[in-house]
Design a protein around this nucleic acid. Sequence first.
DNA 1: CACGTTTAGTGGTATATGCCACTAATTAAA
DNA 2: TTTAATTAGTGGCATATACCACTAAACGTG
Lengths: 152, 152
Amino acid sequence: MSKDALPGLTLCNNAALRRAARKLGQFYDDVLAPSGLKATQQGLLYQIHIGEEPAMGAIAASLIMDLSALGHTLKPLIRDGYVETFADPDDRRIRRVRLTPQGLVKLNEAMKLWHVAQQRLEDVVGKDKAESLRAALDDIAALDFDLPPATP
Amino acid sequence: MSKDALPGLTLCNNAALRRAARKLGQFYDDVLAPSGLKATQQGLLYQIHIGEEPAMGAIAASLIMDLSALGHTLKPLIRDGYVETFADPDDRRIRRVRLTPQGLVKLNEAMKLWHVAQQRLEDVVGKDKAESLRAALDDIAALDFDLPPATP
DNA sequence: CACGTTTAGTGGTATATGCCACTAATTAAA
DNA sequence: TTTAATTAGTGGCATATACCACTAAACGTG
């Protein structure tokens, strides 16, 4: 017994989620490491890729991420030349995002590694279990906890 | 249709996990806000509390967190006087951690709010579903992806 | 059309987390 | 016991993410 030195007592849904996220994040990051991308970056490039030059707000909404957080996360990818932004000509408030050619190459490279990670995980936990886990996580992501306001 | 502007396509286990973690984290953070603690901090205080003056390494192992990350996360809590560290007299490499009296007070305050969040979540998703989700997450956390090395 | 409001992003600040290099303390080996 | 290897943390640097205050652009109304 070297690992679990303390009782996990993971009764907290949020704590359990973060813990699992750290674990899984490390795994995906490890597998993706040869590409030089983190799993979060690969995921972001992918999200941009599947969108039609998505606006930042649209990406943030899809990822359930704060808009400013997205802006910050995007910076290293822009700096490294994988992504570029441009103002929407019809509404100059809107900034759209697209992959550069190098970004697309890098994404393809990372996707190969992603498949490896994804496959290895599903080998370990089982395809069904992984699928139902994702479904449960999507449920969480889709929840609507409107804090019961006084409706004044 | 204002929310999901892009197709979620959450096929990636890791992406789904992070997305759910952002969502749930925001919810717990919102509910805990009156205490001035983030959900991560409440969880960390709790983990310290249930341990017997745990060593940093033990806490990090329990939370599946990098040791240095734990050190960083601990800093604001030490600065705010909720936590203190001290060297183990039998092995001065080891730093043990404990709550200060104020830390205990703050934890109790935060736990009340935590119960609210936890309850509200379980009201929304259902107790069984929450429980099985936690079980699945604990499974993930307990996985052992030893990258098949060449075993030289 | 001028003014107030809403919408989309940016920049600053703070926490969360990880990796790496380095130090201190222990332990194991020669 | 003197030295090599292991263990526990620290500090620096980088990304991930959030909230807030602020700017700019578009909208809606009188």
